[in-house]
Design a protein around this nucleic acid. Sequence first.
RNA 1: GGAGGGAUCGCAUAGUGGUCUAGUGCGGCCGCCUGCUAAGCGGUUGCCCCGGGUAACCGGGGUCAAGGGUUCGAAUCCCUUUCCCUCCGCCA
Length: 421
Amino acid sequence: MIDIKLIRENPDIIYRAMEKRGEDRCSIEEVIALDNSYRQLLKEAEALRARRNTVSDEIGRMKGKPPAELIAEMRQVGDRIKQIETEANQIAAGLEDKLLRLPNIPADDVPVGRDAADNVEVRSWGERREFSFKPLPHWDLAEKLGIIDFQRGVKLSGTRFYVLKGAGAALQRALINYMLDLHIQKHGYTEIFPPFMVKRECMVGSSNLPKFADNLYHDAEEDYWFIPTAEVPLTNLHRDEIIAPGMLPLYYVAHTSCFRREKMAAGKDTRGIKRGHQFEKVEIYKFVAPENSDDELTRLLNDAEDICYNLELPYRVIQLCTGDLGFAAVKTFDIEMWAPGCEEWLEVSSCSNCGDFQARRANIRYRPDNESKPRLVHTLNGSGLALPRVMIAILENYQQADGSIAVPEALRPYMNTAIIK
RNA sequence: GGAGGGAUCGCAUAGUGGUCUAGUGCGGCCGCCUGCUAAGCGGUUGCCCCGGGUAACCGGGGUCAAGGGUUCGAAUCCCUUUCCCUCCGCCA
């Protein structure tokens, strides 16, 4: 959520930000109008309350019975307060809803652009492997090796579901443990295993609701929401808290299943395991002081890249332009791995600085030192990494002429084998 | 799922309609005292919103789990919801 005071005092900044994102500006005008009428009503209600407080206090001090006219007048004042407050609350709710649907302001150094075509490649690492044979896409490789069962996945749960079997399941498990260990031991993150179903207000805090309900699975009976990423529970870990002096930065890593309806992408990427309704992901997450968040994003990105580097999978880092930036982000870098079989760059990670956007929604603050007032933290998140796409990259990059897969060196201690055949 | 008990300022507690602008202890902060430490003495103390001011600050409103109700006035009475505890039932 954008600070209403900023919108009130510097609307030009917000207009410019929305323009860079390709959003229209009329919602801002509505916000400003609602904010004005709300504050007007609030002022009235507060003045009446101040009067009531004084008079009630006087009545309390009186020895005898208070005059009937005074009681009658105060009864009217009470009714009026109720009236104004009802109206004010309605306006406040409308204002809140509008504010919750406004995207974050991009950082100044984010390249301006319309869509993904205007994203900027920052760097790349590793050579694309030369094959002496035609590399197969992962669905063919996996089918032949019997490590992914697409048909039975559909039998169990329908389209966009699959079953990992034998070495397929083992490879995923090895990757999860490997990634967790690296982030915990080398990069200093603390492991978290959160719930996969959360309350509505968690989804609002992380900014998945109210705007993106279409992408979420929801249990209507209990009002539980299935997490589309560990970012949701991790953000809410410190919801409504004031983090004590000296505690920041906080680094968390979590492996969770992720659940996405993928309504928006109907019909896209239906082949293989690139885009499923349920997938595993290791997520890295930081709560930091505002002045450090830009540096912390660089380090978070490096931590995610470290996995790609150690698995010896060629990748590139892309900076998202203003038009492609996610709703909550001020700045985002994607990591893409090359998949020689299906011949495309796979997004395996998205690393974002959300500034104080989620912190304001989720009311997450910190105290710089004992004497100071609480301030909003900055939150950062990144995949470290998304499992199915890393598996695609491994299968397709490490395939051999006979259809077997060499296990990346770093993963062998976790797999107890050097080859999948 | 059933029956009962509870939720108060960081923590522990007091408070059953107006002297509560929520008291006290601990902790925190400031100062004094003291070879050092501990102890002691004095003062201070959360968060949110609105208005004024460059600012320290000042004025007002809100906040006793959340929302609603009764009342001139609610931490206190009533209703609903949430969470926690005890017992019973069910359960990996």
